[in-house]
Amino acid sequence: MRITCPYCGERDRREFYYRGAAVDLDRPAPDAGGEAWDDFVYQRENPAGPIRELWFHEGGCGAWIVVTRNTVTHEMIDVQLASEVKA
């Protein structure tokens, strides 16, 4: 598997750490309530198809990136910096 880091270019999957769905970027307010927090920490859409997910270029530049990838075919569709997605 190969991932294109926005800073470093195409690199082997071995350089990256996987965290999970990009829902982790959408942290609720402290008072958002139990359901919102349960959704954020535990519940997952878990789609069979394109998913937005978080990877960390641990063996490279140290960027957290948002990868859009198909979970059925492993096709890489898009990559963005997490910091830019959040900005």
Partner: peptide, 13 residues
């Protein structure tokens, strides 16, 4: 393999 997948096949690492 550590990434979400429904492909029922793995990767080399």
């Amino acid at each position: 393999d550590f990434y979400a997948s429904y492909a029922a096949r793995g990767n080399l690492p």
